[in-house]
Amino acid sequence: MNRTLARLITYGFLAVMVVFNLVPFFWMLSTSLKTGPEAYAIPPTWWPLNPTLYEGYGKVLLWTNFPRYFLNSLVVSLGAALLSTAVGALAGYGFSRFFFRGRTFLIGVLLASQMLPGVLLVGPYFKMLARIGLYNSYLGLIAAFTTLTLPFSAWMLKGFVDTVPHELDEAALIDGCCRRQAFLRVVLPLITPGMVATLIFAFLLAWGDLLWVLCLTSTDSMATVTLGLSRLVTQFRVLWPQLMAGSVIAVFPPMILYLILQKYLVQGLTGGAVKG
């Protein structure tokens, strides 16, 4: 009796949550396959009457700047992710292998820098980039995104270096390697999966941002996917099939990447407080 009740509650809760989780995806996909007039039907149709790829996907890819937004997102997110993964790997090794004075403090600084809100920094960025001619440029955006990705990457990579037994670099040092070689030839190859995971998470962190791009770009040709989509909404006539098609395209790459890498994520974000 008691067990039946427990199972009932468990499956009931699960059913409610599955519906809650999936309805927005259903609505996004459904709308992206509708024609413009059908999307505005009152009452709405749940399944598209005449599913069409052209009205949503075709038009957003052919008639709007969306491919350009996609390219911009790719360039700036990848730029910030590569930069912070490379620099982060060095820092991760330093923090993992050396116990110098001030180490705890510097790790604290690294962690605390993740607490700073973007709105604190966008203002100065706007003014400084305008001064040095990097406003509305890839380089400016990459620098801005590095504020998001670098602390995260360095911290996550320290966790990955921690998993490599220190006896390995000791052996390399005894064999006559210098520190640089021990890092490059011994440790780096072993943390390659971790670096890929870090790279992808940093990429996704930058991919989802709106605030920085909103503040640091002025032309449509520099907009990213998130900014492009948000601009399509504020236009006075919203074309929902196109917008939802764009959303599906914007969601697809992160979704696949997150699902592949979810097991690293908990470790990376909680500082290895649990081993997942």
Partner: peptide
């Protein structure tokens, strides 16, 4: 896995 901007749109 959905960027918050897209969640807001949907």
């Amino acid at each position: 896995t959905v960027p918050d901007v897209v969640a807001g749109l949907v």
